[in-house]
Design a protein around this nucleic acid. Structure first.
Lengths: 188, 188
DNA sequence: GCAAAAGTTTACCGATCAGTACACATTGAC
DNA sequence: GTCAATGTGTACTGATCGGTAAACTTTTGC
């Protein structure tokens, strides 16, 4: 198997979808921007939808690898990691090409809850919730499911707000909120 | 009064855009679903973009009127109102046609920060931030800007999570988080 | 009552949409 | 060297995109 061109296609398509959106990106634009012929695209993926799902799978892998890795580099204990996740987010927000969360956008453009693209977005969020809940449990929180969900709420809120508002610093305020919630969730 | 077709158009178009998305909704579909002829549409709005902006303005008015009114009906003091906002959100999440925040979706489909549609979405969030910050100040918070932003983060996070995750109760967890943050923000 | 404003139907424009057909080129394994 | 997989370019489909033109009908203000 030589999946060279296929991977290259998915990698480049991911960039274009993230930058321009899903409906706003036509297959002809993908031909121009990925350097892969349309014939070849449709040999690997029967529909645009399948290509989007593949791009989202790659995005999930890339993002969580980066996120978890950055957190591990910034903190040691589970409690520290919960807070460090907002430092990682803050770095992300400052990147030039920052355009929000690809899965929120995917869920927004494909709203039908049974749609494969929507399901892919939901699975990404489920994995993040699981990650935060595990950290909360390891940190010794009384109700790890609740704290994990609250950390997730702060993260999603910060991502959205970082896109739409210039007047506040979501990563910083979210981190301080997380610190308060964490302290409150630990047994006395 | 005057049975203005323009208002009827904007009202119906708003429903369709919210339900199906912006790029996914063509002008021909709007003709079919609003009962307004295409000629008449283009007499009121020169472009689809202008119609979307008008729909977003109406949505902003409708949503904030409902949101503020519901909060006023549920609570009396500023501190109570900050918490009651999550009860209002919880009611919204349970509605049949709940499809997330129209402005988050608008910002996601029109990502250019100078785009009129993106600006409209940003303005909506700015008004909500102002509202929460005012409540935080009236409640006696030490740093009302910070608490206001944190409440906003919880709200946006809850809206997004309510769309993508079935396994948790964002409105409840967000409210409990807000309670902790509020208590922590009040002077001893 | 009557003219203007507002709305309608129908047909059309060029561009782009997702997706296909076909002939030809490049590559790798044996 | 050859076969077959994998790639390419070009041209095409029917549908839909946002937007327009022209002729006709309804509603409204005075």
């Amino acid at each position: 198997m030589r999946p060279n061109k296929r991977d290259e296609l998915v990698r480049n398509a991911l960039q274009v979808f993230y930058r321009d959106g899903f409906h706003a990106t036509g297959m002809d634009k993908l031909v121009a921007e990925t350097g892969v012929s349309k014939t070849s695209m449709y040999k690997h993926f029967r529909t645009k939808e399948e290509l989007i799902v593949a791009a989202l799978r790659l995005r999930d892998e890339n993002f969580r690898n980066w996120f978890y890795g950055r957190i591990d580099a910034l903190a040691e204990t589970p409690a520290q990691k919960l807070l460090a996740s907002f430092d990682a987010l803050g770095e992300w927000f400052e990147e030039d090409g920052y355009r929000g969360c690809m899965f929120i956008k995917a869920g927004a453009e494909y709203q039908d809850k049974d749609h494969p693209i929507h399901l892919e977005a939901a699975e990404h969020k489920r994995l993040l919730l699981e990650y935060f809940t595990d950290l909360a449990r390891d940190a010794g929180a009384r109700e790890p499911e609740k704290l994990g969900c609250q950390i997730l709420l702060l993260k999603e809120g910060a991502i959205v707000t970082a896109v739409l508002l210039k007047s506040c610093d979501p990563a910083r305020d979210a981190k301080e909120a997380a610190r308060v919630l964490l302290a409150n969730a630990l047994p006395v």
